[in-house]
Structures are given as C-alpha cells and as structure tokens.
Design a protein around this nucleic acid. Structure first.
Lengths: 263, 263
DNA sequence: GAGTGGTCTAGACCACACC
DNA sequence: GTGTGGTCTAGACCACTCT
C-alpha cells in the first residue's frame, strides 16, 4: 500500500447498496489483523514461536507501525498472541505452564482465582471410535454418522476425583489417536492436541446445568447415585470459528466451585 | 502538566527501593484513567450522562488527546464508559434496556447468547432486616452483626419460575429500602439501586455449584424437593472494588442453562 | 457545518531483555 | 549497545450525529 497523496492508503468505503446490511467500512488494522490470523492459521508461525517485529510487519503490509500495533493489541487481547516487552510477540500456546489449564474454571473453595494452584492429575478411562449422533454432529458441524473419537477421563484434584469428562473429536481431524498417546502425554489435552496435531483451541462456549449423578458418573466420581453434579457442556473452536472439540463434563461441587468473573 | 523540554511530561520512574515490589513505572494513561474513575466515583458525571470530549479532558489533564483516548478505551473495555461515535462518551448504566440484565447468564436452551431475549418477570417474596452472619459479613466486608437487608425474589421466564434469589445488602448503604419500592420499580434490581441510591455495580465474581432443592426452593421454583439446581453465589462490586451486594441464586436448569464464553 | 469519536501516520523517547 | 515492545505526542483526515 503506497502512500499516494492521501494518508489513508486503502480501505475505501465503496458504499455498495447490496440487499442487506453493508459492512460499510473496514479499518485497516482489522484487515491487518485478518492477514495475521491467516498466517497463523496457515502455520507460518507456530505456537510458542515469535512473530516478526512490529516494524517488519509494518513494512510487509505497507502500513505504519502504529497500525500493526493496534492489530496485534487486539489479537493479544484475545490470547491469540502474547507480547513480551523487550523480547517480541509470540504465538500463544496451551503448552506453557501458565496457560495449561486456561479453560479450566473449577477451583477449590477458598482458593483465589489467580493462584498458582496445583494442577489436576488425569486418569483416562477409555477411547472409542463411534459414529456421530445428532447432538455431536450438530456441535462439531459434522454430518450425522461421520466417525468421531470419544474419550472418557477423570480429573483428580488433591487425590479426589472431581471431574468426569466425555470428549468428542472428529476422527478426520485427529487420525491415529490412541489412548496410549494420551496417557504418555503430560499436561492438558489441549497442550497435547496442539503439539501433536497442530490443533490450536482459540476460544470455547460453555453451557452449564445441574444434574443428578448417574451410575457411570457416581462410580468414577466416587459419590452416591443422584448426587447433584455440575454438567458443563463445551464446544471449543480453532481459527475461523471452526468447532473442533465437544465435551460434556460432570463435576463434583463439594469443596469445589466453577468460578466466573462478570464484567 | 506543562511540556518542558521533554515530550514526557510526568510519570517519572523514581526508582525508590522500598521494602517490597516497587510499582516501578505507571503510564500516564493509567493515571488519567484513575482520575476519570475518581470523578466517576465522586458523581461528577452521572450514569447515562456524557463526559467531556476527549479534547476537553486532554486540556484539563494537560496531556494529548491520544493519551486520554487510551484511558477512555480501557474504561470502555470494562463497560464503565460507553463510546458512541459522533455523539460522545457516556457513563455506562444498568438502566439502558440493552444492559438491564448485563450480569444475567441464564438462557433458554437453543437461544443464541446475543439474542434480544425476552426479559424475566420479577416476583418479590420478602424483605427482612437482619444481623450479618459470618458468611455475609465476609462477603460484604462488614463486621459480623452489622445490619443487613435480605431480599428474596423469584425470576420468572416465559411463565416458569427459574431463579430464586436471596440478596443481601448492607443496611447502611441503602437506608429506607422497602419491598414496596422494589415492587414499584421496573427492570433489574441493579437499575433500581443505581437510580435510587446511585450505587453502580461495576463487576461481579461468581462461584457455581450443583445442589439439591430444599423445601423453600422447591416450593418457589415449583420442582420436587431434591431436584438438582444450580447454586450461583455472587458478590457485586462498585468503584474501588467495594463489595456492595452478596446474593445466592438457585436456578432450575431444565430448559435453561448458565452460559459462558471462555477466551 | 460543527462537533465528537475513529483511524492512520510519523517520530521521539522509555523500559526491558539479551548480548 | 542493539533490538523489541510500550508510551506519548501532534496533526491529518474519515465517519457519524445533530442542527
């Protein structure tokens, strides 16, 4: 984008009167943000790696450093990039100890939200290959009947089983996945999927209900059948809002709570 | 702050070696942000009103418009201010229809998170004055035994009672509050407290558990005793992180879910 | 047209990390 | 010291709202 007479190199309104709601105007930094996202999605810079400096990116895209900065700021705000003063800007990763359990909201009661808490221990129960039912297909945007992988596991906090997860993944996205690989891996499942399959979880939606423990949950969580449990449904997304993982967690809330901050 | 020789008017590091972790450096825009917060807390600009333009504030504080902008951006990001292009920057309010139920996370299943959903109807059960027990005192940072107001109510969605709330407020902050005033008010309780007492809720922390319905909850939510319910504990804060409200909600999750977005 | 927020640029200097 | 991100400024112009 060469600087002609104007200071505004590109991004013309071009007020086209298409049938419905015209986007009207797209700021330059939004476009830069999209370009960076594309490079990220294409794997040009891998998780944990540094991306080029702001000045390099500014030259590359033909905009000022300030505009790149605004784009990077936005991505850092979404935890897609991480800035480190004096060092550079890095692709965020679930592998870093501090972000291992980024999406885990269960906390021991009385434990501050930001504390460097002790991490849970994972016990895998099983891994099966099935055909997607209507629910799983809808959540993962697959066709019903497509192959999926179902993983069952228990998360143990301080010696107590607290969370029972049933995780569903599209078979096509994670070929060759075995329970042995999961058992051999350290840390969170997102860390594993990231390093092994390059599947980066960007964000997730959750819907929470209260349910009574069924036989299966009661057995693995070591509580009586009928005990009220938190049921946490989650869909996790990668780049481009593509759903990758669908899970249902059952959580014991005796001594533990799901914590959330509202703003 | 006059522009002397340097471009950096104030905010000197002044690396004092006090006993513990020195703040080291405080950006100008952070200081401006604090000043704006002070004016907000002091009621200089009331909820719904416009604050001075960025240029006016820049002159007032002796900084550039860009620095004011950064401070205002931060406050807008926390929903403390609201920007409206072409019109001005306004003090956020719980009274506006779009933000009436800003902290309410229960949604009918299948309803998109951002939908202009139909609002709940509130039925007040009772209002009593009591002495703070240990729990309430801790949550509201009061001394045990200080006077508190306890409000019970039910939120009805589409004709069904879904949420039973028990709300605790410090008596001292809300003198003269009666159930008649609540019943006469329209919309959310935060909207009411804001317009009547000038108490603005800025943010809130929640801790969620699954519990079995007791007799009281079963009666008002029209479910059998023992039905699993979501128990949502909330502490809401005003300016200066002062806790103002402590509530415990019990929610029916048949057809409704607590929704949350993780990033 | 006037006023307000929104975008973009260019350049200076500060803070931090690594050599 | 060099390079990176972080802050601050000054000025130009765009987009939106109201009069």
């Amino acid at each position: 984008m060469s600087k002609s007479a104007s200071t505004q190199p590109s991004a013309k309104p071009s007020s086209q009167s298409s049938g419905v709601a015209a986007p009207a105007f797209r700021p330059l930094y939004e476009q830069i943000k999209s370009l960076i996202m594309q490079s990220l999605a294409a794997g040009e810079w891998k998780p944990g790696e540094a991306i080029p400096s702001e000045f390099e990116l500014a030259t590359r895209y033909g905009v000022s450093q300030g505009t790149v900065r605004k784009a990077v700021d936005a991505l850092a705000g979404e935890f897609i990039l991480v800035r480190r003063q004096g060092k550079g800007t890095f692709v965020a990763t679930h592998t870093a100890p501090a972000h291992q359990y980024r999406f885990l909201r269960m906390r021991a009661d009385g434990e501050p939200a930001d504390s460097a808490r002790h991490h849970p221990v994972t016990t895998f129960i099983g891994l099966t290959r099935e055909r997607a039912d209507a629910l799983a297909a809808a959540k993962l945007r697959l066709r019903q009947g497509q192959s999926v992988i179902k993983i069952s596991r228990v998360l143990v906090f301080a010696g107590r089983p607290i969370i029972l997860d049933e995780i569903t993944l599209a078979q096509a996205s994670f070929p060759g996945l075995t329970i042995e690989m999961l058992e051999a891996s350290q840390g969170s499942i997102y860390s594993f999927l990231e390093t092994t399959y390059g599947a980066r979880m960007i964000r997730a939606d959750e819907a929470i209900k209260a349910v009574a423990a069924d036989r299966f949950a009661a057995k693995h969580l070591e509580v009586p059948v009928g005990t009220p449990l938190l049921s946490v449904d989650r869909v996790a997304y990668t780049y481009g809002d593509k759903p990758v993982e669908w899970r249902r967690g059952r959580c014991v809330t005796d001594g533990y709570s799901y914590i959330n901050e509202l703003a």
